Amino acid sequence: MDPAVPGPFGAIENGAIGVIDGRIVQVGRRSEIAGSRARRVEALGGAWVTPGLIDCHTHLVFGGNRANEFEMRLQGASYEDIAKAGGGIVSTVSATRAASEQELVDQALPRLDALMRGGVTTIEIKSGYGLDKKTELKMLRAVRALGRGRAVRVVPTLLALHALPSDYKDRREAFVRLATDEIIPAAKAQGLAEAVDAFCEGIGFTPAEVQEVFEAAAAAGLRIKLHAEQLSNLNGAALAARYGALSADHLEHLDEAGAEAMARAGMVGVLLPGAFYALKETCKPPVDLMRKHKVPMAVATDCNPGTSPVLSPTLMLSMACTLFGLTPEEALAGMTLNAARALGRENEIGSITTGKVADLCVWDVTRPAELCYWIGHPGPQRRLFGGIEA
Score class of each variant (00 low, 15 high):
Gln230Cys: 09
Ala174Gln: 14
Leu234Arg: 00
Asn14Leu: 01
Met335Asn: 03
Leu326Arg: 06
Ile33His: 04
Ala216Asp: 08
Tyr79Ile: 13
Gly15Gln: 04
Leu178Met: 15
Arg66Leu: 11
Gly76Cys: 13
Gly88Ser: 10
Arg141Gly: 11
Leu104Pro: 02
Phe324Ser: 03
Val25Leu: 03
Gly28Gln: 01
Lys356Cys: 08
Arg172Ile: 07
Arg141Tyr: 12
Thr354Gly: 09
Leu315Ser: 02
Ile54Lys: 00
Ala263Gly: 08
Arg341Ile: 11
Arg97Leu: 10
Val287Gln: 11
Ala47Lys: 06
Ser127Thr: 11
Asp113Phe: 06
Lys284Val: 13
Ala198Thr: 14
Pro273Met: 11
Gly149Asp: 07
Ile12Trp: 09
Pro3Ser: 11
Gly274Thr: 07
Val196Lys: 05
Met139His: 04
Asp132Lys: 12
Gly344Thr: 10
Arg383Lys: 07
Met297Asn: 05
Ser351Cys: 09
His57Phe: 02
Ile89Asp: 10
Ser166Arg: 15
Leu137His: 05
Val90Thr: 13
His293Trp: 15
Leu323Gln: 14
Ile352Trp: 05
Gly202Cys: 09
Pro207Ile: 12
Ala342Asn: 03
Val27Pro: 03
Ala193Asn: 12
Ser78His: 07
Lys188Asp: 07
Leu271Phe: 11
Ala77His: 09
Trp363Arg: 07
Ala83Leu: 13
Leu234Glu: 02
Met116Leu: 10
Glu69Ala: 08
Val5Arg: 14
Asp21Lys: 02
Thr206Asn: 05
Ser127Met: 12
Glu281Pro: 06
Ala298Pro: 03
Ser91Lys: 05
Ile183Ala: 10
Met139Ser: 13
Glu281Cys: 13
Ile349Ala: 01
Phe276Trp: 14
Val310Gly: 00
Gly386Met: 01
Pro368Thr: 07
Phe276Cys: 11
Arg264Asp: 14
Arg171Trp: 11
Leu271Lys: 06
Lys294Cys: 13
Gly386Asp: 00
Leu222Phe: 04
Val41Cys: 10
Ser78Arg: 05
Gly204Thr: 10
Ala195Leu: 14
Gly63Cys: 08
Cys321Arg: 01
His253Ala: 11
Leu234Asn: 00
Met72Gly: 01
Gly128Ile: 09
Glu71Lys: 08
Cys283Met: 14
Gly64Gln: 02
Thr121His: 08
Glu201His: 11
Ala342Trp: 00
Leu161Pro: 03
Leu315Trp: 00
Lys126Val: 08
Gly128Lys: 02
Arg242Gly: 14
Ala34Asp: 06
Ala11Ile: 09
Val176Tyr: 05
Ala85Leu: 15
Pro207Val: 12
Asp113Trp: 03
Val19Ala: 03
Thr135Gly: 09
Gly344Gln: 06
Ala275Gln: 02
Ile352Met: 10
Glu201Asn: 12
Leu158Arg: 02
Thr301Asp: 02
Pro368Ile: 08
